[in-house]
């Protein structure tokens, strides 16, 4: 025992490191699992296989574009996305519409600008640098128009919910008739996956609700999938860059670790051979 303790470090590098790494991970993971079990309310969420999951996950470009169409034609009537700009639509790692397309999308919206030299506000066609146009001028107006419930801004919605992508996907597909004896308030809908099952938002997705520009059949499930993908990108536009850079960084660090480890062994061999 003592003998072991006295041998200077490096023969035990790997063994020690294993212990250290294990311990480094144990604590946060315990805490995370503690938090996770908190969300045990209600049913298990529907799980979809998302292309953006995993270490090398990327977005499905076509799905992102369809998702934007769903947002534009269905969600944007009530939900704002105030952190996004039209220019984001053609940025790398996103839907990657061509610059011209994004310009046209932007120009199809009326943006309030001003004041002009007379001190009046005026409207003009949108530009790439404009933020997404909001459906309501402020929270109060949004509440008033939606029976007191504010339709949340969707810019970071996915990150603002536990297991966000699956959660939103499940909510969109979770509408059904309330079970026998379930008291539903007026102006509220039943949703299987909503905590408490009461949701102010009505079911908005129906088969064939819209005509996808790329000809994909607009089933409810397809639309739910596309809008979820779009919202995930909106929450985390750097996801692709993050995965790509992360892979390189870790690979590089591993190589660096090996080289430094060899140097270390060389160095200490002088001491140990004494």
């Amino acid at each position: 025992m003592i003998q072991k303790q006295l041998i200077t470090g490096d023969n035990f590098v790997l063994k020690k490191l294993k212990i250290i790494i294990k311990i480094l991970f144990i604590y946060p993971i315990i805490i995370v699992s503690a938090n996770n079990s908190m969300a045990a309310e209600g049913l298990d969420l529907l799980k979809n296989k998302w292309s953006f999951e995993g270490l090398f996950g990327t977005f499905d470009r076509a799905s992102l574009r369809r998702g934007y169409q769903v947002y534009n034609e269905v969600c944007s009537g009530c939900h704002s996305m105030k952190l996004l700009s039209y220019r984001n639509l053609s940025e790398k790692g996103g839907p990657e519409f061509s610059r011209e397309d994004s310009k046209n999308i932007a120009a199809s919206f009326e943006v309030i600008d001003g004041p002009n030299s007379e001190g009046e506000m005026f409207t003009r066609p949108g530009r790439l640098s404009d933020k997404f146009v909001k459906p309501y001028p402020n929270v109060q107006a949004a509440e008033a128009a939606n029976g007191g419930a504010y339709p949340p801004d969707m810019s970071v919605l996915i990150k603002a919910r536990k297991d966000g992508a699956n959660y939103i996907y499940s909510i969109l597909l979770g509408y059904e008739d309330p079970p026998e004896g379930f008291e539903l308030d007026e102006g509220v809908y039943y949703n299987k996956y909503m905590p408490g099952h009461n949701i102010k938002m009505p079911n908005v997705l129906f088969d064939g609700l819209l005509d996808y520009a790329d000809g994909t059949e607009a089933t409810t499930q397809q639309m739910a999938k596309d809008i979820t993908t779009f919202l995930t990108w909106a929450s985390e536009p750097s996801l692709e860059a993050r995965h790509k850079i992360g892979f390189k960084v870790i690979l590089y660090l591993i190589i660096l670790a090996f080289v430094v480890h060899l140097s270390l062994k060389k160095l200490w061999s002088r001491i140990e051979s004494k």
């Binding site: 470090g9 490096d10 490191l17 250290i20 790494i21 480094l24 991970f25 993050r242 995965h243 850079i245 992360g246 892979f247 960084v249 870790i250 660090l253 591993i254 660096l256 670790a257 430094v260 480890h261 140097s263 270390l264 160095l267 200490w268």
Partner: peptide
Amino acid sequence: VKDLYALIIFLIITAGFVF
């Protein structure tokens, strides 16, 4: 150098979280 080596291992774990 020993500290540096440990630091690099530590950074790999950090990078795992960050990325």
